[in-house]
Design a protein around this nucleic acid. Structure first.
Lengths: 249, 249
DNA sequence: TGGCCATTTACATATATGTATAAATAATTC
DNA sequence: GAATTATTTATACATATATGTAAATGGCCA
């Protein structure tokens, strides 16, 4: 019963349940949840009852099924509404994904790592699995370095000091070497990283224009290095067009 | 440290945090959460870190603030899109609006309230402003009671108990009195409520036939009571025809 | 009625919470 | 710029609480 990751079990399960609902989009029985998510029945019952008591699920006692209430729908709605322009971001991702049919993702800085927060996969056979929540070393990975390029030199130095202090050695980096790369990104407006995290995998990443209160975001197109190299001009053009169309109007 | 309600503590806190974000709509520090929600610092830290690890919040280490990711925004989105994916409902609203030129709306249950999710206004001078997102007391309002009429008596009793427990007094109701009204709706197939929320305003509401897995919806025609009374037969006939034409094929 | 489900209960164990304390970081002062 | 103070975050461990196993209850249909 060891917690494999560092998250509180109940917290993880709440979100697992909500995502399962998002996946199947219909009422679900206690049995189905406990089976699919592999929770003991009694634990699943306690969790779902809690969510009902709090008003986030509705229990249909006739069919013995649970279904999200509108409170769930409302919860994050404000993030989409104009203020943060996040619906524009989603449209951008959709657009690039539609045009290129490659892995398209949005990532942001989460402490000393870059973290994927939204991913659309390619329909092609050869692909690399990435899911929202996955993290990459800030100073090493393509998206991480692209995120860093938006910081001031002072901030970068400070972040790198912390990385070298607390992160495992494979995430360490020399400042001079890093700044050469960072300045390259600032000059080119994008980063093309190859074979860094996963052999044969690469990513073309661009820092998105900053919106108020929004954290800096990076748009990434990922895939096998050979495919990215072949399509590089097309990919860059598409990313630039998407950004111009959805984020600059 | 007794749990006053029957819900799992972590579950309650997850939602409290998300609602606090919804309330203030900006990045929040650990300190602020722990103060406002009255959690011990270390517990709040563990909770927020979990949410970061799971990809639902991101942490800005420079400002030491937390902010929801787009995953939160996406979570309940399907609940909204599902409603309108079914264009039959929209066609129905258009039809009734065209025929009657009155305020026509669709509402649904959102926890312990009815909530308008779609409205078309009349072109007449005398009108009552209602917009999508507005909520009405479930046990008091016409649309709320119409929604309740689709539940079993047991469910109604349970909902009413929660309403009387957590909602302000003006939304409370006696079960016997409510059931008389509910049974009237079930018998007549519609509800005509007058002067309940806004003086001189009324609504004629019908529960729409349930579609698979879609949440129960209510079709409402609203306006000044005098006008609705005058046109009552015409309005009812139009609503019935629209429902027959668009939802029963 | 009896059999077969799904759900609830009981209780030992695992795990999250909360108090106090320490460490780290930021702000202030000289 | 270094030292000091104030603020915020992290750690340790006892306690409270949720989880999980197994057995019991309740509902439904033949």
């Amino acid at each position: 019963m060891a917690n494999t990751d560092s998250s509180i079990k109940t917290a993880r399960r709440i979100f697992e349940v909500l995502e399962y609902f998002e996946d199947v989009q219909r009422p679900i029985s206690l049995k189905e949840i406990s089976t699919k998510c592999d929770y003991p029945t009694s634990s699943a019952a306690a969790l779902l009852k809690s969510m009902v008591a709090l008003g986030y699920l509705f229990y249909d006692s006739y069919n013995r099924t649970y279904m999200p209430t509108m409170r769930i729908a409302q919860m994050g709605g404000w993030l989409n509404s104009g203020l943060f322009g996040d619906s524009a971001i989603l449209s951008l991702v959709d657009f690039v994904h539609q045009e290129l049919d490659e892995l398209v993702n949005i990532s942001t800085q989460s402490d000393l790592h870059a973290q994927y927060i939204h991913c659309l996969q390619t329909r092609k056979r050869l692909r690399f699995e990435v899911k929202p929540g996955d993290v990459r070393p800030l100073a090493i990975s393509g998206v991480g370095r692209t995120l860093l390029s938006g910081h001031t030199d002072v901030e970068i130095a400070r972040l790198l000091r912390r990385i070298n202090a607390v992160c495992p050695p494979e995430e360490h980096m020399g400042l001079d070497e890093l700044m050469k790369i960072i300045n390259g990104i600032r000059r080119d407006g994008y980063m093309f990283s190859k074979h860094i995290i996963v052999e044969e995998a690469g990513v073309i990443a661009m820092l998105l224009p900053k919106r108020d209160f929004g954290r800096p975001l990076v748009l990434g197109v990922g895939g096998p290095v050979s495919r990215l190299e072949e399509r590089q001009d097309q990919i860059l053009a598409c990313m630039r067009e998407g950004i111009a169309r959805f984020l600059r109007d």
